[in-house]
């Protein structure tokens, strides 16, 4: 029986590469995941209005069910799922009104006992980065990597407990462990424009340009993320930027688990590397 795992809706469809590469890499490292027997959408966005408990019900239901698996942990990799599940779990643990109302809606008695974990935390705590160093078959020596956390992993710091709200370091530690070189990347927790891609193209295009430029200034060869929406925003606009500006040079945007898969020499087909807009294949030749 593996560690209970919540993939989330996007990972079964548009971000299948994130799901496939997460399962394949963690399994290769002895960290088997078992998908929850039944699950629904987590709701994606944590509600910020104090009385909006309805916006927490979906996550609360997933958490209450996952607690019955008896492992005490729930792993999820999409940054949105991780953010909302962790914040709702925090509310269930620390906010009396939230706990009473949500349990009443759900006819459950769940009090936030689970630990909601990101695979980066599993790699650090269950496997250990020193051990990961000895497991990578193909050292990505000298590959310059920009670690892009986006806005969801580390904020709010008190609830997410993912390091400094604007300067987390876990992804960089991971990159070092697979033998690559994290660049100094001041835009690592800037927002890519997020769901405003539906509403305001200029906003997203502006933020994405800033982030790509900051990555390129440090000679990054690849940007890594754990968020399907960051991945999409940073990736799909690059064709358009290249059309608009002949001097624009593209940079591949991968899930961190895909980079891990490359380091572990897992076959490209299992990592979903074919589904990106900017072709990451040239990276496979490097090193």
């Amino acid at each position: 029986m593996g560690i209970p795992y919540f993939p989330g809706c996007t990972l079964h469809v548009k971000a299948k590469g994130l799901d496939d590469s997460t399962r394949a890499t963690l399994a290769a490292l002895g960290l088997e995941l078992t998908e929850l027997p039944e699950w629904t959408c987590c709701g994606t966005a944590f509600p910020l209005a104090q009385d909006n408990y309805m916006g927490m019900v979906a996550s609360a239901r997933i958490l209450a069910k996952a607690a019955k698996e008896g492992d005490g942990r729930l792993v999820t990799v999409c940054s949105f799922c991780y953010n909302v599940l962790k914040r709702v779990n925090f509310a269930l643990k620390n906010n009396d009104e939230a706990r009473t109302k949500l349990n009443a809606y759900l006819e459950e008695n769940y009090n936030g006992e689970l630990r909601v974990l990101h695979p980066l935390e599993l790699l650090r705590d269950d496997l250990g980065f020193d051990s990961l160093k000895t497991r990578v078959d193909r050292k990505l020596k000298g590959m310059k990597v920009a670690c892009y956390y986006g806005c969801m992993l580390s904020r709010p710091a008190k609830e997410m407990e993912f390091g400094e709200p604007e300067n987390p370091a876990l992804m960089e530690e991971f990159v070092k462990a697979v033998g690559a070189e994290p660049v100094d990347f001041p835009y690592k927790t800037k927002c890519c424009g997020s769901y405003q891609v539906l509403n305001n193209y200029d906003l997203v295009a502006g933020r994405v340009k800033d982030i790509l430029k900051a990555a390129r200034v440090r000679d990054s060869e690849v940007i890594i993320t754990s968020c399907p929406l960051c991945q999409f925003n940073l990736d799909w606009l690059q064709d358009r930027f290249a059309d608009e500006d002949k001097s624009f040079s593209k940079i591949p945007v991968l899930y961190f688990t895909q980079l891990l898969g490359i380091a572990l020499e897992i076959s490209v087909a299992k990592l979903g590397l074919d589904n990106h807009y900017v072709d990451p294949k040239p990276l496979l030749q490097a090193g």
Partner: peptide, 10 residues
């Protein structure tokens, strides 16, 4: 093209 969670959150 857009990932599902962009629609839900948006």
């Amino acid at each position: 093209e857009i990932p599902q969670m962009a629609l839900t959150s948006g």
